[in-house]
């Protein structure tokens, strides 16, 4: 099965972190990504620019409405994702728990909708 692992973190708190910690965090991400590429679970993954760069689009009655900012204001923001292939939810949850941000933020695990 395929799962999307969505990485949520408080951006404001993250921005305040010490550069040495950010460096270590980034190294942990490199190591983690390499490990799931090697195990064959990795399908895709990216880090997102902060919500200050987000734009939300809605089309109503044919008119495009564009607003500055994310779809919803939340305490923690979507900051990145991995798309993985895993045997079942247990395997997916075990991988999600190894994402460095799982220790400070939260990882939402969602199965991909498969059309037959």
């Amino acid at each position: 099965m395929q799962y999307l692992l969505m990485i949520y973190q408080n951006e404001a708190e993250y921005a305040k972190l010490d550069p040495a910690i950010l460096q270590k965090n980034s190294e942990e991400y490199v190591a983690f990504t390499q490990s799931i590429v090697q195990s064959g679970n990795f399908k895709a993954g990216d880090r997102l620019r902060p919500i200050a760069t987000a734009t939300t689009v809605r089309v109503r009655e044919g008119k495009t409405l564009t607003t500055d900012g994310p779809f919803a204001e939340t305490r923690e923001q979507l900051g990145g994702y991995y798309l993985i292939e895993a045997k079942d939810i247990d395997a997916a949850l075990a991988i999600a728990a190894r994402i460095p941000t799982a220790r400070t933020g939260a990882i939402e695990v969602r199965p991909i909708w498969v059309y037959n």
């Binding site: 099965m1 799962y3 939810i89 247990d90 997916a92 199965p111």
Partner: peptide, 14 residues
């Protein structure tokens, strides 16, 4: 069914 919760007894680790 949809989230892939396995029909299994957990392995020794978990």
């Amino acid at each position: 069914r949809l989230a892939g919760i396995p029909y299994e007894v957990p392995d020794r680790d978990t």
